[in-house]
Write a protein that binds this DNA or RNA. Structure first.
Length: 292
DNA sequence: AGCCAGGCATCAG
DNA sequence: CTGATGCATGGC
């Protein structure tokens, strides 16, 4: 399922499945994921190729995928809770898009950079420019069969890149200084993502918003998709519109107010609620009738 | 041509 | 606290 709701760039779509190369336990693993069976009885086929042909990292890779797609979440229970709280239109949306996975980035740094990158951007452009960055600055990995891929660049690597150069290569515009500054903070240890991960939602959010270039929306993206804190409900233009219509009678509401409303209404399922609100908003836009 | 996209920093009231 | 404006870039 491709909802576009993630803090990792889209995986490459190949005839054999979705392709990604990530380091596990220090060793690069090529991972092909394919869903077999339908939405009702889905199962995943994984084809893993470790760089040195060892078996060590394969277990880690499987766990990585399990975490990425949050396969341990009990969707039925979550749907039940959402629909008990529910507004009729939200319930219908949950039912219609049932089976969507909330993504949890395998690497917090990837989640951080991609979240900052997504601000005031389009999903399409965002994916493309992040891919360009990876292909330009990422470490090159060559497998035994001769195939080669690029990893997402490390904080150390990005912290050394010049802003103008980075902007010229990736076309990410004014976000370049935010992205590289964040990479420097992480590399120098001034922003400890693992420490933030251990914090509860609200304090963690405070810490993230202090970083220049990270506001409420980006912080929530990072906390939800990057760290898996499901209290977070990122409110973008789409969620803002649909929530304004559903819960505020088209009245004036700030994004922050909507975010707080969703947290109070859905608790630690706010992230899941947001997932479906986003789908509803996008779907409504496609069929035309969307007011502001 | 002008508005918009998974916003944010900044500044004015 | 709320409201305007500039910021890069590309799609439509």
């Amino acid at each position: 399922v491709k909802s576009g709701q993630t803090s990792e760039p889209e995986w490459e779509e190949t005839p054999e499945g979705f392709l990604d190369v990530t380091r596990y336990n220090g060793e690069a693993v090529k991972c092909l994921v394919r869903q077999v069976g339908g939405t009702r009885e889905p199962s995943l086929q994984l084809n893993l190729v470790a760089m040195r042909g060892a078996h060590g990292p394969e277990y880690e890779a499987v766990e990585g995928i399990r975490r990425l797609l949050r396969l341990d979440d009990d969707l039925e229970r979550i749907y039940h809770h959402l629909t008990v709280i529910g507004d009729a239109e939200v319930n219908a949306t949950v039912h219609r898009f049932a089976g969507l996975r909330l993504m949890h980035s395998r690497d917090p740094f990837v989640g951080l950079i991609c979240s900052i990158w997504s601000q005031n951007n389009s999903v399409r452009l965002w994916n493309r420019s992040v891919r360009i960055m990876r292909n330009h600055f990422g470490e090159r990995i060559r497998f035994r069969d001769g195939s080669a891929y690029r990893l997402f660049p490390s904080a150390r690597r990005l912290s050394k890149v010049n802003v103008q150069h980075f902007k010229a290569v990736t076309r990410c515009g004014y976000r370049a200084k935010y992205i590289l500054q964040a990479a420097r903070l992480v590399h120098r240890g001034d922003l400890d993502l693992n420490a933030v991960d251990k914090m509860s939602y609200l304090p963690a959010r405070e810490v993230m918003i202090e970083v220049v270039g990270i506001g409420p929306k980006v912080a929530d993206c990072f906390l939800l998709y990057g760290l898996g804190k499901t209290d977070a409900a990122p409110v973008d233009v789409w969620v803002h519109r649909v929530a304004k219509r559903l819960f505020f009678q088209h009245g004036k509401v700030t994004r922050e107010r909507v975010a707080r409303f969703l947290r109070e209404r859905y608790g630690n399922l706010a992230g899941y609620a947001q997932l479906y609100l986003f789908c509803l908003a996008r779907e409504t836009a496609l069929t035309g009738a969307l007011d502001r």
